[in-house]
Design a binder for these strands. Structure first.
Lengths: 338, 338
DNA sequence: GATATTTATGCAAGCGCTTGCATTACGCCA
DNA sequence: TGGCGTAATGCAAGCGCTTGCATAAATATC
């Protein structure tokens, strides 16, 4: 038994395929009697039109792709991207699009997958978790060249033709640093995951500016780069320079807290902590971590809004949107006790 | 300027569309001179054939869908599903399929999305994160009825027609409990996230059996159900019954550890801990958490293997596969000190 | 009740690709 | 060089749907 087609339904309902199509797409008046019969058959059979045929004739698939360049390590420690995926999924559904997620593990994946992703008739547009670092710049380049409607979450490096939504890490870091200064901290350490990422550079800049604006000297020893695996060691080294606050990637909070417990540095009495991202983890640490939060809901909505706009009106000129971030005060920064 | 089609390429290369198609699909001998010209044009234009047209004529899209029923809370605390997604993505690429992830947030999503997912010509088959609890049983039912090739990760409840891959939670819990007993623990507490899930029921059964086999009395007060938000309180209550070990969902480890620190119960000297899942978190806790680990790599491979098999040979009879799990001994169970 | 107007329906083309079949070009051997 | 087998190529149909156009039916108008 072959799969049902429009034609089968038409025969069963005693009408022409066109009529069935029109019923399916609601472009037939409600008072038609044929309509009733078709509807009945449709319900009985549970018929769903063939997606490929539909896409072919309509020249669009009603599917949007979300590309996540993510070697295992990255994504597992970064639930934020998942939250983004959820928000975007929701936003797409509201606009009657389907959101399809694609994981890009290795570089070979990328070579293999990208050409397929940019085929017409597959997805109508692409949202990319862009430019975490220079490494995925070529990806954006290639996507951009493909002509596929595209928006990036995160500002692309060296590429000013791509529309993007990003968050203002510089201001956020500035504000967080200022907050710590207001609380009386003077030796504020900064841990970043890498200096290759735009985000880190912006945070560093915001941090520096806040210190300078207040006339607090910048101690280069208090600035450290730490990967996931050496967060513990890096923290220990940092402690030799007697910081009274640490500004850190939230995913490293557990390692940092462990060091502080081991060295009997009470948080926040002796040392204050602020995380760069508001992951679920921030609520589970002891004490709960004050963290910078991105307005994910709004970001997601604007990403898909922007993409749909580009799909309708073309990609020029590129759209840009910068979102402010918010400092969520919990206990690790000491402000609760003032 | 309209998008390029096979016909355009054919014209540019001075051949017929059929020839271009054959070059694209590598079913033309290598010594053809036309082939060279086509290849050249293809390279120059970066042409990619229209995916919808291809799917339509071939009656398959070379895309597999991974359906993730995941309200935000669930997925954010459960990176395991992401690991699965990565493994499956990889396995699909190796088999020349594209893996497309779909998040099912709300129930309304489900109503809206499922019909689209089961359309022919969209995906060729579906992998579902099945039956975490009764709640998504209807989902599996509907998918099953749609006739779409389907495999479930996790054993479906009340449904014996669906092929699945699952892990042997009962044996794993049995072994972990036995391990604790061997280490001299006698008052082993069990925290589960819910009693609605198959997984929890199996764990509970394995736990009970291990105790009975060793003649250790089962204390019902040592068995507790805790959600993410009341893990802390539940742990405190549990402590009133003086457990010397706790068997817990890994994602609750931080809360449990906090209670134990606050009550000065040293892990593992005073109390041993074992987590049900080996999340990245297990390595970051202090002390690192002994945990049960699923062979994700193998599971992922078999899920796609099974699905492709079903796509080729039909769904009957349903395939079933049960994987053993492994106890990863770290410091929280005390075995390191023996 | 006859005509004009609106609304529902059917016909057929076509979206961009693949592929069976018929045809042509090619290389080989005598 | 002619005849043969094989490989390369082109033609045209068709995958399942939508939609412009023409026609038929239903409704409104006088």
């Amino acid at each position: 038994m072959h799969d049902l087609t429009l034609e089968d339904i038409a025969r069963m309902a005693g009408v022409s395929p066109s009529t069935v199509s029109r019923v399916l797409n609601n472009l037939v008046g409600t008072r038609s009697k044929a309509r009733e019969r078709v509807l009945k058959v449709l319900a009985e059979t549970g018929f769903q039109p063939n997606a490929a045929a539909r896409s072919l004739v309509l020249q669009r698939s009603q599917v949007i792709g979300l590309l996540i360049p993510a070697p295992a390590s990255t994504i597992l420690h970064n639930p934020a991207v998942l939250q983004l995926a959820e928000v975007i999924t929701q936003a797409c559904h509201e606009r009657n699009y389907l959101l399809s997620l694609f994981l890009l593990g290795s570089d070979t994946d990328e070579q293999q997958i990208l050409p397929k992703m940019t085929r017409k008739g597959f997805v109508d547009g692409l949202i990319v978790r862009g430019a975490d670092d220079r490494a995925n710049d070529p990806l954006l380049h290639r996507l951009s060249e493909s002509g596929m409607p595209l928006v990036s979450f995160g500002r692309p490096i060296d590429l000013d033709t791509i529309s993007y939504v990003a968050t203002d890490n510089a201001t956020a870091a500035y504000n967080a640093t200022a907050h710590l200064l207001t609380l009386g901290r003077r030796r504020i350490a900064l841990m970043v995951g890498s200096l290759e990422t735009y985000a880190s550079q912006e945070r560093l800049a915001g941090y520096r500016k806040a210190l300078m604006d207040r006339g607090v000297p910048i101690a280069e020893q208090l600035i450290a780069v730490a990967g996931m695996s050496d967060a513990y060691g890096t923290t220990r080294r940092l402690l030799q320079h007697a910081p009274d606050a640490i500004f850190l990637p939230t995913r490293m909070a557990l390692d940092v807290l462990r060091v502080l417990r081991e060295t009997n540095l009470h948080v926040p009495d002796k040392i204050a902590l602020i995380g760069f991202e508001d992951l679920p983890l921030a609520l589970q640490t002891d004490p709960p971590l004050t963290a910078i939060s991105q307005p994910m809901e709004a970001i997601g909505r604007h990403l898909v809004g922007m993409l749909l706009d580009i799909m309708e009106n073309g990609a020029a000129p590129p759209r840009r949107l910068l979102f402010p971030q918010e400092l969520l005060i919990r206990q690790s920064c000491g402000a609760m006790y003032m």
